[in-house]
Simulated assay, not measured.
Amino acid sequence: MEKLKLASTIFLTSALIMGGCGNFGKNADKPNREEATLIHEDEKAGGSVETGDGYGFTTFDLEIDVEGKDAIEAAYDVTGNLKVDYENKLSNKKLTGSDAMNELSKLFMDILITKDTPQQEVIDKILKYYRLDMYSKFDLEVDFDDGTKLNIEDVK
């Protein structure tokens, strides 16, 4: 009798494991079935880097001049099609498309600005990122996802 209980317990346990972990759906044998993908919580709610929600803004337009000459220009706009341009004359980089996006993504993730970040803190974070001590012109325009705008213009 005890062997019967043990055998039925093993059978029931293995059936539950196979049912819970197995892939017995109607498309299990099809080679072209869809693979599961991981989705970040923000993407599920409609946000991603392509829509701007990944960084918190839909446009980012930066221009920094050093000693009266163009030094850094960065443009990121997702209001229509994704448009990204980046030029850093101090390090001789001029990038577009995915190369520019990779470069700007590093900047965005380092500075992490929000609509509530004070203007001087935004300037300081960007200058620190580019290792600049001074500038002759700093112009930044950011349109945040919630419709608020940040506009910093400083000429020295």
Rank of each mutant, 00 (worst) to 15 (best):
I17S: 14
A45R: 11
G46V: 06
V66R: 09
R33W: 04
F11A: 15
L6H: 09
L38K: 13
F57N: 02
K137L: 00
E2G: 15
V84D: 04
S91V: 07
S136I: 11
G52C: 02
N23Y: 10
I39S: 03
K3L: 04
A100E: 14
N23H: 15
G52S: 01
V84L: 07
G80V: 03
G147I: 03
A28Q: 07
D61Y: 03
M101G: 06
F108C: 06
D124G: 08
T114H: 05
S105D: 14
G46W: 00
T148S: 15
K69S: 14
G54Y: 01
Q119L: 13
M109T: 12
G19P: 15
A45E: 03
S14L: 12
M1N: 10
D110K: 12
K44F: 15
K69V: 09
T148P: 02
Y130R: 11
K94M: 05
N88G: 06
G97D: 15
L107W: 04
D85A: 13
E121Q: 14
E34P: 15
Y76F: 12
D139S: 09
K26A: 13
A71I: 09
A71L: 10
Y129I: 08
T58I: 07
G80T: 10
T51R: 10
N81W: 01
L104H: 03
L140A: 14
I123T: 13
K30F: 07
P31M: 06
M134N: 00
E73W: 07
S8T: 10
T51A: 01
S48V: 05
I111H: 02
L140P: 12
K44N: 05
F108N: 00
D124T: 13
M134P: 00
C21V: 11
I72R: 00
S136Y: 02
E67S: 00
K156W: 05
V66P: 05
L62W: 08
L90V: 10
T117L: 08
Y55T: 01
T59N: 01
R33Y: 06
S105N: 11
K128I: 00
K3C: 02
S48P: 08
E141P: 08
E103S: 14
L12N: 09
G56Y: 02
V122H: 08
D42I: 04
D61W: 13
K26I: 04
A100R: 02
D139P: 01
E63M: 06
S48I: 00
T13S: 11
V142G: 03
D65F: 11
D154M: 10
G147M: 05
H40C: 11
K26P: 14
E2F: 11
D124Y: 08
F108I: 07
G19A: 10
F24T: 10
M18E: 08
N88F: 01
K89D: 12
A100I: 14
D70L: 10
S14F: 11
N27I: 07
E41K: 15
L82T: 09
T51N: 09
K125S: 08
D85W: 03
I64A: 04
N32S: 03
K5L: 06
I123G: 02
Y86F: 11
E2R: 12
A45Q: 09
G22C: 04
I111S: 12
D61K: 13
Y76N: 01
E141G: 10
A74V: 05
E41M: 14
K115G: 07
D65W: 08
S14Y: 15
V78F: 04
T96S: 15
K44T: 14
E35Y: 14
E35G: 13
D77Y: 01
G25A: 10
